[in-house]
């Protein structure tokens, strides 16, 4: 599968449209149900504090899913993602209020590869701090 983006139209440094993803407690409850990850650190403040966290934190895989959206929204075809990896460096702390937290994601083309593939490097931050490290996707362009 190939994306709507042509390999010929990108170069190292090409920026993907950035995006902001709000996350509230309600978002986390919904993600817990959809993903089957019911670890109480993602919805129970008392439990989170007991295990040494500052507050309820977002699922790492939720943050990974949101960061991928910058890539898949750019590609059009999510099936053009060939590889995707992240390191969970800091938790996204989600306070119990209406605003919750925001995950800010940006990305740029970091390398041109064989077979019209490129590597995209992503940056994800929340409350001004990086929450993912080594966030990279290899994608198939047209």
């Amino acid at each position: 599968m190939a994306a709507g983006i042509a390999f010929a139209d990108v170069e190292v440094g090409t920026e993907l449209p950035p995006a902001s993803f709000p996350v509230t407690r309600a978002t986390l409850v919904r993600y817990a149900g959809a993903s089957g990850d019911f670890n109480p650190i993602h919805w129970n403040e008392r439990f989170a504090v007991e295990v040494g966290l500052p507050d309820v934190i977002a699922h790492g895989m939720f943050t990974m899913a949101e960061a991928a959206r910058v890539v898949t929204d750019w590609l059009g075809d999510p099936g053009a993602v060939v590889e995707y990896g992240v390191r969970f460096t800091r938790p996204v702390v989600v306070p119990n209020d209406d605003e919750g937290a925001v995950i800010e994601v940006s990305g740029k083309v970091a390398a041109l590869l064989d077979d019209k593939r490129v590597r995209v490097d992503l940056t994800a931050t929340s409350a001004g701090q990086k929450v993912l490290g080594m966030a990279r996707a290899v994608v198939q362009l047209a």
Binding site: M1, Y31, G33, A34, A65, R69, D77, P78, G79
Partner: peptide, 27 residues
């Protein structure tokens, strides 16, 4: 749950236009 409205996840026609035999799942 991840707030992603990409039609390839929910619309078989949209998925087919991209060459997928059925709706696909997010990565």
């Amino acid at each position: 749950a991840i707030g992603d409205a990409n039609p390839a996840y929910t619309d078989r026609g949209a998925a087919a236009e991209l060459g997928h035999p059925d709706v696909i799942a997010p990565p």
